[in-house]
Design a protein around this nucleic acid. Structure first.
Lengths: 161, 161
DNA sequence: GCGATTTATATTGTGCACAACTATATTTTG
DNA sequence: CAAAATATAGTTGTGCACAATATAAATCGC
Protein backbone atom coordinates (compact mmCIF):
# COMPACT_ATOMS: atom_id res chain seq x y z
CA UNK A 1 0.00 0.00 0.00
CA UNK A 2 1.30 3.40 -0.96
CA UNK A 3 0.75 6.27 1.42
CA UNK A 4 0.57 9.62 -0.33
CA UNK A 5 2.33 12.13 1.89
CA UNK A 6 3.77 15.40 0.63
CA UNK A 7 6.73 16.89 2.40
CA UNK A 8 4.81 19.61 4.18
CA UNK A 9 2.50 17.23 5.97
CA UNK A 10 4.41 17.61 9.20
CA UNK A 11 4.95 21.35 9.00
CA UNK A 12 1.24 22.19 9.36
CA UNK A 13 0.19 19.19 11.43
CA UNK A 14 -2.24 20.43 14.03
CA UNK A 15 -0.51 18.68 16.89
CA UNK A 16 2.75 20.45 16.14
CA UNK A 17 1.27 23.92 16.03
CA UNK A 18 2.16 26.12 18.98
CA UNK A 19 -0.88 28.23 18.15
CA UNK A 20 -3.20 25.28 18.72
CA UNK A 21 -1.43 24.19 21.90
CA UNK A 22 -1.95 27.70 23.30
CA UNK A 23 -5.55 27.79 22.16
CA UNK A 24 -6.34 24.38 23.61
CA UNK A 25 -4.46 24.96 26.87
CA UNK A 26 -6.14 28.29 27.44
CA UNK A 27 -9.60 26.84 26.96
CA UNK A 28 -8.79 23.81 29.12
CA UNK A 29 -7.62 26.14 31.87
CA UNK A 30 -10.83 28.13 31.65
CA UNK A 31 -12.79 24.91 31.99
CA UNK A 32 -10.76 23.92 35.04
CA UNK A 33 -11.87 27.16 36.73
CA UNK A 34 -15.57 26.54 36.08
CA UNK A 35 -16.43 24.98 39.45
CA UNK A 36 -15.12 28.05 41.27
CA UNK A 37 -16.64 30.48 38.78
CA UNK A 38 -20.01 28.80 39.08
CA UNK A 39 -19.76 29.02 42.85
CA UNK A 40 -18.91 32.74 42.68
CA UNK A 41 -21.48 33.19 39.89
CA UNK A 42 -19.12 35.04 37.58
CA UNK A 43 -17.48 34.33 34.21
CA UNK A 44 -13.80 33.79 33.54
CA UNK A 45 -13.12 37.25 32.04
CA UNK A 46 -15.04 38.78 34.95
CA UNK A 47 -12.70 36.90 37.31
CA UNK A 48 -9.69 38.38 35.53
CA UNK A 49 -11.21 41.84 35.94
CA UNK A 50 -11.75 41.16 39.63
CA UNK A 51 -8.11 40.16 40.08
CA UNK A 52 -7.08 43.58 38.80
CA UNK A 53 -9.67 45.42 40.88
CA UNK A 54 -8.62 43.46 43.98
CA UNK A 55 -5.07 44.68 43.41
CA UNK A 56 -6.27 48.25 42.88
CA UNK A 57 -8.31 48.20 46.08
CA UNK A 58 -5.14 47.59 48.05
CA UNK A 59 -3.41 50.60 46.59
CA UNK A 60 -5.64 53.15 48.26
CA UNK A 61 -6.81 56.34 46.61
CA UNK A 62 -3.52 57.94 45.68
CA UNK A 63 -3.44 56.17 42.32
CA UNK A 64 -6.99 56.96 41.20
CA UNK A 65 -5.62 58.23 37.93
CA UNK A 66 -4.65 54.68 37.02
CA UNK A 67 -7.94 52.99 37.84
CA UNK A 68 -9.71 53.66 34.58
CA UNK A 69 -11.30 51.40 32.01
CA UNK A 70 -8.34 52.11 29.79
CA UNK A 71 -5.85 51.06 32.46
CA UNK A 72 -7.87 47.90 33.04
CA UNK A 73 -7.75 47.23 29.34
CA UNK A 74 -3.98 47.62 29.28
CA UNK A 75 -3.55 45.12 32.10
CA UNK A 76 -5.86 42.56 30.49
CA UNK A 77 -5.00 43.47 26.89
CA UNK A 78 -8.68 44.03 26.15
CA UNK A 79 -10.37 47.01 24.53
CA UNK A 80 -13.48 48.98 25.38
CA UNK A 81 -15.54 46.90 22.97
CA UNK A 82 -15.06 43.97 25.31
CA UNK A 83 -14.80 45.75 28.64
CA UNK A 84 -17.67 48.25 28.44
CA UNK A 85 -20.46 45.65 28.18
CA UNK A 86 -18.66 43.27 30.54
CA UNK A 87 -18.35 45.98 33.21
CA UNK A 88 -21.98 46.96 32.73
CA UNK A 89 -22.99 43.38 33.46
CA UNK A 90 -20.76 43.36 36.54
CA UNK A 91 -22.28 46.67 37.64
CA UNK A 92 -25.76 45.19 37.30
CA UNK A 93 -24.63 42.31 39.48
CA UNK A 94 -23.36 44.78 42.08
CA UNK A 95 -19.71 43.80 41.66
CA UNK A 96 -18.27 47.07 40.38
CA UNK A 97 -18.92 50.80 40.46
CA UNK A 98 -18.37 52.96 37.38
CA UNK A 99 -18.10 56.75 37.41
CA UNK A 100 -16.61 59.51 35.31
CA UNK A 101 -13.35 61.06 36.48
CA UNK A 102 -13.87 64.62 37.69
CA UNK A 103 -10.51 65.64 36.22
CA UNK A 104 -11.30 64.25 32.75
CA UNK A 105 -14.83 63.55 31.63
CA UNK A 106 -13.63 61.06 29.03
CA UNK A 107 -12.28 58.67 31.66
CA UNK A 108 -14.42 55.97 33.27
CA UNK A 109 -13.12 54.96 36.70
CA UNK A 110 -13.81 51.41 37.84
CA UNK A 111 -13.67 49.92 41.33
CA UNK A 112 -14.72 46.77 43.15
CA UNK A 113 -17.66 46.90 45.56
CA UNK A 114 -17.56 45.32 49.02
CA UNK A 115 -19.52 42.46 47.54
CA UNK A 116 -16.72 41.89 45.01
CA UNK A 117 -14.02 42.20 47.67
CA UNK A 118 -15.78 39.45 49.63
CA UNK A 119 -15.15 37.01 46.79
CA UNK A 120 -11.39 37.33 47.01
CA UNK A 121 -10.69 34.97 49.94
CA UNK A 122 -12.98 32.35 48.42
CA UNK A 123 -11.09 32.52 45.14
CA UNK A 124 -7.73 32.41 46.89
CA UNK A 125 -8.65 29.36 48.94
CA UNK A 126 -9.94 27.50 45.91
CA UNK A 127 -6.86 28.27 43.80
CA UNK A 128 -4.53 27.13 46.58
CA UNK A 129 -6.46 23.92 47.09
CA UNK A 130 -6.53 23.10 43.40
CA UNK A 131 -2.78 23.46 43.11
CA UNK A 132 -2.30 21.15 46.09
CA UNK A 133 -4.72 18.54 44.77
CA UNK A 134 -3.15 18.69 41.32
CA UNK A 135 -0.36 16.49 40.07
CA UNK A 136 1.13 19.64 38.58
CA UNK A 137 3.96 20.97 40.72
CA UNK A 138 4.40 24.58 41.68
CA UNK A 139 7.75 24.51 39.89
CA UNK A 140 6.12 23.40 36.65
CA UNK A 141 3.59 26.20 36.92
CA UNK A 142 6.28 28.79 37.56
CA UNK A 143 8.38 27.57 34.66
CA UNK A 144 5.53 27.43 32.17
CA UNK A 145 4.36 30.83 33.33
CA UNK A 146 7.82 32.27 32.82
CA UNK A 147 8.17 30.76 29.36
CA UNK A 148 4.74 32.04 28.36
CA UNK A 149 5.47 35.52 29.59
CA UNK A 150 8.79 35.57 27.79
CA UNK A 151 7.06 34.40 24.61
CA UNK A 152 4.36 37.02 25.04
CA UNK A 153 6.96 39.78 25.32
CA UNK A 154 8.70 38.74 22.11
CA UNK A 155 5.42 38.31 20.24
CA UNK A 156 4.24 41.70 21.44
CA UNK A 157 7.40 43.50 20.43
CA UNK A 158 7.21 41.92 16.98
CA UNK A 159 3.56 42.48 16.15
CA UNK A 160 3.96 46.08 17.32
CA UNK A 161 6.30 46.78 14.44
CA UNK B 1 3.83 56.01 54.90
CA UNK B 2 2.21 52.70 55.68
CA UNK B 3 1.38 50.42 52.81
CA UNK B 4 -1.55 48.16 53.55
CA UNK B 5 -0.77 44.80 52.04
CA UNK B 6 -2.32 41.56 53.25
CA UNK B 7 -0.37 38.36 52.88
CA UNK B 8 -2.36 37.01 49.95
CA UNK B 9 -1.65 39.98 47.72
CA UNK B 10 0.91 38.05 45.75
CA UNK B 11 -0.98 34.79 45.52
CA UNK B 12 -3.72 36.20 43.31
CA UNK B 13 -1.68 38.86 41.52
CA UNK B 14 -2.74 38.84 37.90
CA UNK B 15 0.77 38.73 36.57
CA UNK B 16 1.52 35.55 38.49
CA UNK B 17 -1.51 33.67 37.28
CA UNK B 18 -0.79 30.91 34.80
CA UNK B 19 -4.41 31.13 33.69
CA UNK B 20 -3.94 34.73 32.59
CA UNK B 21 -0.61 34.04 30.89
CA UNK B 22 -2.31 31.31 28.84
CA UNK B 23 -5.29 33.52 28.08
CA UNK B 24 -3.13 36.45 27.02
CA UNK B 25 -0.66 34.36 25.03
CA UNK B 26 -3.41 32.57 23.16
CA UNK B 27 -5.08 35.82 22.16
CA UNK B 28 -1.75 37.39 21.21
CA UNK B 29 -1.01 34.40 19.02
CA UNK B 30 -4.38 34.71 17.32
CA UNK B 31 -3.63 38.35 16.62
CA UNK B 32 -0.25 37.44 15.15
CA UNK B 33 -2.05 35.22 12.62
CA UNK B 34 -4.43 37.97 11.50
CA UNK B 35 -2.46 39.15 8.45
CA UNK B 36 -2.50 35.63 6.99
CA UNK B 37 -6.11 34.99 8.01
CA UNK B 38 -7.21 38.24 6.42
CA UNK B 39 -5.36 37.28 3.26
CA UNK B 40 -7.06 33.85 3.18
CA UNK B 41 -10.34 35.46 4.27
CA UNK B 42 -10.97 33.00 7.10
CA UNK B 43 -11.10 33.18 10.90
CA UNK B 44 -8.70 31.59 13.33
CA UNK B 45 -10.97 28.70 14.37
CA UNK B 46 -11.71 28.10 10.70
CA UNK B 47 -7.96 27.85 10.09
CA UNK B 48 -7.69 25.22 12.81
CA UNK B 49 -10.51 23.28 11.15
CA UNK B 50 -8.70 23.51 7.84
CA UNK B 51 -5.50 22.11 9.35
CA UNK B 52 -7.42 19.01 10.38
CA UNK B 53 -9.20 18.72 7.04
CA UNK B 54 -5.89 19.13 5.21
CA UNK B 55 -4.54 16.18 7.19
CA UNK B 56 -7.65 14.12 6.48
CA UNK B 57 -7.44 14.82 2.77
CA UNK B 58 -4.05 13.11 2.69
CA UNK B 59 -5.39 9.95 4.27
CA UNK B 60 -7.55 8.98 1.33
CA UNK B 61 -10.97 7.44 1.67
CA UNK B 62 -10.17 4.40 3.76
CA UNK B 63 -10.71 6.30 6.97
CA UNK B 64 -14.02 7.93 6.13
CA UNK B 65 -15.43 6.67 9.37
CA UNK B 66 -13.15 9.07 11.22
CA UNK B 67 -13.92 12.20 9.21
CA UNK B 68 -17.05 13.24 11.05
CA UNK B 69 -17.99 16.38 12.88
CA UNK B 70 -17.53 14.45 16.10
CA UNK B 71 -13.99 13.41 15.16
CA UNK B 72 -13.21 17.00 14.23
CA UNK B 73 -14.54 18.09 17.59
CA UNK B 74 -12.31 15.60 19.37
CA UNK B 75 -9.21 16.87 17.59
CA UNK B 76 -10.01 20.51 18.30
CA UNK B 77 -11.71 19.89 21.66
CA UNK B 78 -14.80 21.71 20.43
CA UNK B 79 -18.42 20.59 20.51
CA UNK B 80 -21.21 20.69 17.96
CA UNK B 81 -22.51 23.95 19.40
CA UNK B 82 -19.36 25.61 18.11
CA UNK B 83 -18.63 23.49 15.06
CA UNK B 84 -22.05 23.21 13.44
CA UNK B 85 -22.51 26.94 12.76
CA UNK B 86 -18.81 27.37 11.99
CA UNK B 87 -18.91 24.60 9.38
CA UNK B 88 -22.09 26.01 7.89
CA UNK B 89 -20.33 29.32 7.38
CA UNK B 90 -17.37 27.54 5.81
CA UNK B 91 -19.76 25.60 3.58
CA UNK B 92 -21.35 28.87 2.45
CA UNK B 93 -17.89 30.13 1.61
CA UNK B 94 -17.24 26.98 -0.45
CA UNK B 95 -14.48 25.70 1.83
CA UNK B 96 -16.06 22.47 3.07
CA UNK B 97 -18.62 19.90 2.06
CA UNK B 98 -20.99 18.40 4.63
CA UNK B 99 -23.02 15.25 4.08
CA UNK B 100 -24.66 12.56 6.13
CA UNK B 101 -22.90 9.21 6.40
CA UNK B 102 -24.72 6.50 4.50
CA UNK B 103 -23.84 3.98 7.21
CA UNK B 104 -25.22 6.15 10.02
CA UNK B 105 -27.64 8.95 9.37
CA UNK B 106 -26.70 10.68 12.60
CA UNK B 107 -23.12 11.29 11.45
CA UNK B 108 -22.12 14.41 9.53
CA UNK B 109 -19.05 13.85 7.37
CA UNK B 110 -16.87 16.87 6.66
CA UNK B 111 -14.25 17.38 3.98
CA UNK B 112 -12.23 20.19 2.44
CA UNK B 113 -13.07 21.39 -1.08
CA UNK B 114 -10.42 22.00 -3.74
CA UNK B 115 -10.74 25.66 -2.91
CA UNK B 116 -9.81 24.91 0.69
CA UNK B 117 -6.92 22.65 -0.36
CA UNK B 118 -5.55 25.52 -2.42
CA UNK B 119 -5.08 27.58 0.74
CA UNK B 120 -2.69 25.11 2.31
CA UNK B 121 0.56 26.08 0.51
CA UNK B 122 -0.16 29.76 1.14
CA UNK B 123 -0.58 29.08 4.85
CA UNK B 124 2.53 26.92 4.99
CA UNK B 125 4.68 29.56 3.31
CA UNK B 126 3.44 32.28 5.61
CA UNK B 127 4.01 30.23 8.77
CA UNK B 128 7.54 29.32 7.68
CA UNK B 129 8.38 32.93 6.85
CA UNK B 130 7.04 34.23 10.12
CA UNK B 131 9.17 31.83 12.13
CA UNK B 132 12.24 32.90 10.18
CA UNK B 133 11.52 36.60 10.60
CA UNK B 134 10.81 36.15 14.27
CA UNK B 135 13.33 36.49 17.08
CA UNK B 136 11.76 33.38 18.54
CA UNK B 137 13.88 30.32 17.84
CA UNK B 138 12.56 27.02 16.62
CA UNK B 139 13.93 25.43 19.79
CA UNK B 140 11.93 27.82 21.97
CA UNK B 141 8.77 27.01 20.05
CA UNK B 142 9.35 23.27 20.37
CA UNK B 143 10.05 23.51 24.08
CA UNK B 144 7.05 25.69 24.87
CA UNK B 145 4.88 23.48 22.72
CA UNK B 146 6.05 20.39 24.59
CA UNK B 147 5.49 21.98 27.99
CA UNK B 148 2.02 23.12 26.98
CA UNK B 149 1.07 19.71 25.69
CA UNK B 150 2.36 18.06 28.84
CA UNK B 151 0.39 20.51 30.94
CA UNK B 152 -2.72 19.92 28.84
CA UNK B 153 -2.48 16.16 29.37
CA UNK B 154 -2.28 16.55 33.14
CA UNK B 155 -5.07 19.08 33.25
CA UNK B 156 -7.24 16.89 31.07
CA UNK B 157 -6.69 13.79 33.15
CA UNK B 158 -7.57 15.71 36.29
CA UNK B 159 -10.70 17.52 35.16
CA UNK B 160 -11.93 14.23 33.71
CA UNK B 161 -12.21 12.79 37.22
C1' DG C 1 -39.00 -7.13 17.17
C1' DC C 2 -39.69 -3.45 20.43
C1' DG C 3 -39.33 -0.22 24.22
C1' DA C 4 -35.42 1.90 26.74
C1' DT C 5 -31.04 3.67 26.46
C1' DT C 6 -27.24 5.58 24.21
C1' DT C 7 -25.06 8.24 20.59
C1' DA C 8 -24.37 12.06 17.12
C1' DT C 9 -25.65 16.24 15.77
C1' DA C 10 -28.38 20.45 15.83
C1' DT C 11 -30.57 24.35 18.28
C1' DT C 12 -31.00 28.07 21.66
C1' DG C 13 -29.34 31.56 24.59
C1' DT C 14 -25.55 34.10 26.95
C1' DG C 15 -21.21 36.22 27.08
C1' DC C 16 -17.12 37.24 25.40
C1' DA C 17 -13.37 39.16 21.61
C1' DC C 18 -12.51 42.23 18.28
C1' DA C 19 -12.74 45.14 14.05
C1' DA C 20 -14.73 49.23 12.58
C1' DC C 21 -16.99 53.19 13.60
C1' DT C 22 -19.02 57.10 16.42
C1' DA C 23 -19.25 60.60 19.96
C1' DT C 24 -17.27 63.59 22.98
C1' DA C 25 -13.71 65.62 25.75
C1' DT C 26 -9.05 67.18 26.01
C1' DT C 27 -4.64 68.65 24.19
C1' DT C 28 -1.80 70.59 20.78
C1' DT C 29 -0.68 73.81 17.31
C1' DG C 30 -0.56 77.59 14.06
C1' DC D 1 -7.76 81.24 20.86
C1' DA D 2 -9.85 78.55 17.07
C1' DA D 3 -8.87 74.52 14.35
C1' DA D 4 -6.83 70.26 14.07
C1' DA D 5 -5.15 66.35 16.24
C1' DT D 6 -5.42 63.11 19.85
C1' DA D 7 -7.41 60.45 23.59
C1' DT D 8 -11.07 57.84 25.86
C1' DA D 9 -15.25 55.30 25.85
C1' DG D 10 -19.16 53.65 23.82
C1' DT D 11 -21.70 51.35 19.86
C1' DT D 12 -22.51 48.03 16.20
C1' DG D 13 -21.99 43.79 13.89
C1' DT D 14 -19.82 39.21 13.30
C1' DG D 15 -18.09 35.00 14.94
C1' DC D 16 -16.80 32.08 18.21
C1' DA D 17 -17.26 29.04 22.94
C1' DC D 18 -20.09 26.63 25.68
C1' DA D 19 -23.98 25.13 28.74
C1' DA D 20 -28.38 23.32 28.29
C1' DT D 21 -31.67 21.31 25.65
C1' DA D 22 -33.88 19.06 21.63
C1' DT D 23 -34.08 15.75 17.90
C1' DA D 24 -33.43 11.75 15.65
C1' DA D 25 -30.95 7.52 14.58
C1' DA D 26 -28.73 3.40 16.22
C1' DT D 27 -28.08 -0.10 19.72
C1' DC D 28 -29.20 -2.91 23.66
C1' DG D 29 -31.91 -5.93 26.68
C1' DC D 30 -35.26 -8.90 26.70
Amino acid sequence: MTVVCDDDSDELALNRQLCFALYAASRAMTKAYQPMLKDLNITYPQYLVLMVLWEWAQKGDEAEKNKSLGALGQRLMLDSGTLTPLLKRMEQRGLVRRRRASWDERVTLVEATDSAMALKPRARTWVQQQLQLSSITRAEVVELHGDLWHFLQKLGSETAR
